[in-house]
Simulated scan of single mutants.
Amino acid sequence: MNQVVVNVVKARLRRQLVGWGRWMGFEVLGKEESIDFLSPYRIAATPGDQAVLPDVNDFIDADKLVFGRTTAMPEPGYVWQYQSNARKATLLRCGALFSESKVLCLDWRGNQRLLSDFVTLQPRAIRDVDTVIAPWSHYLDGVRFGGYYDYLVLVAGKLCRIKEALPADVFNQAVVAYPLFNTAYEQELLALIGFSGGQIFDSRSTDLRFTTCILGNSGHWFYPNMEDLMALKRQIELQLETDAYQSNRIYISRSGRRRIVNEDALIAMLKKYDIQIIEDRPRTVAEQVAIYRNASFIIGPHGGSFTNILWCRPGTHLVELFSSNYVPDFFLYMARQLDLRYSAHYFGPESENRFSQLEEDILVSVPDLERRLEQFFSEKSTA
């Protein structure tokens, strides 16, 4: 389905949702309308500074352009401390604020499942609290929302933006509520950011009633506001011990989608260059931070693990491997913002639609890559 059709379908669904809302006695605000509604309650704002991303030629074939020069336009990041002037406000099951007969949307334009939040017969436990932090207002679908990258960029980074905008006593006494991802990394990150178990609620099962709600908006999915990620970096690294730097060369393996189909041959070659193989298995956030913080050279297939370049030291070199049918540039964006070195490579015929196969596996020409690595590390040793 092309983007024009997608936009038409989304617009039609939004018109239907607005119509249903009026019929049921509430108003559904779009993202811009929600930001306007909350303007009197704004307590912090971070500009969305644009970033110029340079041409990136292929790591192996220097005559092949992987990314053309472009300008990334992150959105401003806001924090609001909303005070309900009437009866207590609440969050819908999806985590959206519902108050004054209005439903706010601060993450993405429209929420196609809002109507089900009003008509579902499944009860939620009611709980009264003073202040709730509401960082996210969508259900997870396992494709667009629901992975490690999504959580760090869209939820954890925003929570750190909110934490740094609030007085410590307000943050410490507040609860947080949204449709939880229910992952081990979520639990660990929430604890590192400063939330205990008794402060965390799943909006799908608990109907929180409150007079004060702390909210923040989501920005561009590919080009997040880097102030959010830097806030996350500050908050997490404050809680974790820093070991002596080891300057490791590492390969990040993937066992699910976008895996390297000839990985056995690739790994055998990489070991010749003292590249450690990081297998795809569950790890704590602390372990992932340590792996990336101690790396000087990283290579592997495009995937959510590369969100961890946030913990890398400036100058670390990331080599990202793609299929020719899925070549997104958001780790190029992060690497540039973090003062890392970046290279990219894909093997095979170039695709006209570089976002057509999100889950396609990746083939690597091992002999070509070996010749390039031999040259690369030789140049490094003589530099």
Rank of each mutant, 00 (worst) to 15 (best):
K233R: 15
S218L: 09
I291L: 13
P314Q: 08
D130E: 15
D202A: 11
N2S: 08
F171G: 13
E279I: 10
N225L: 07
V6T: 07
V9A: 07
W108M: 08
D264V: 10
E360W: 00
I133G: 05
L180R: 15
K163P: 03
F181N: 02
Y148H: 11
D329G: 09
S116K: 13
F330A: 00
T316L: 09
D169C: 05
V28W: 10
L17Y: 08
E370I: 06
S381I: 04
L340F: 04
P349C: 04
C94K: 07
Y346G: 11
A72Q: 11
A265M: 11
R87W: 01
V155N: 14
S101A: 14
G146E: 04
F377N: 06
P328A: 03
L106M: 03
G19A: 09
G48K: 06
I278M: 09
G68C: 11
Q199V: 04
L338Y: 09
S296V: 06
F145L: 15
A165H: 02
A125P: 03
V56N: 11
E350H: 10
D361W: 03
Q3K: 10
L318K: 03
R127G: 09
K88R: 15
A89R: 15
W20F: 08
E350M: 06
V132S: 01
F322W: 00
P74E: 12
G348A: 09
E33V: 02
P349M: 06
N85E: 08
I200Y: 01
D169L: 02
T284V: 01
S101C: 12
E188M: 04
K88M: 13
Q112K: 12
L140P: 10
L208G: 02
W311P: 08
L53D: 10
S253T: 06
R341H: 09
F181L: 08
G198S: 14
Y185L: 04
L91V: 12
E263H: 08
C312H: 02
S101W: 00
P224R: 01
L29C: 13
Y151L: 08
K163W: 07
D61V: 04
F377P: 05
P123L: 03
A383K: 12
S196Y: 07
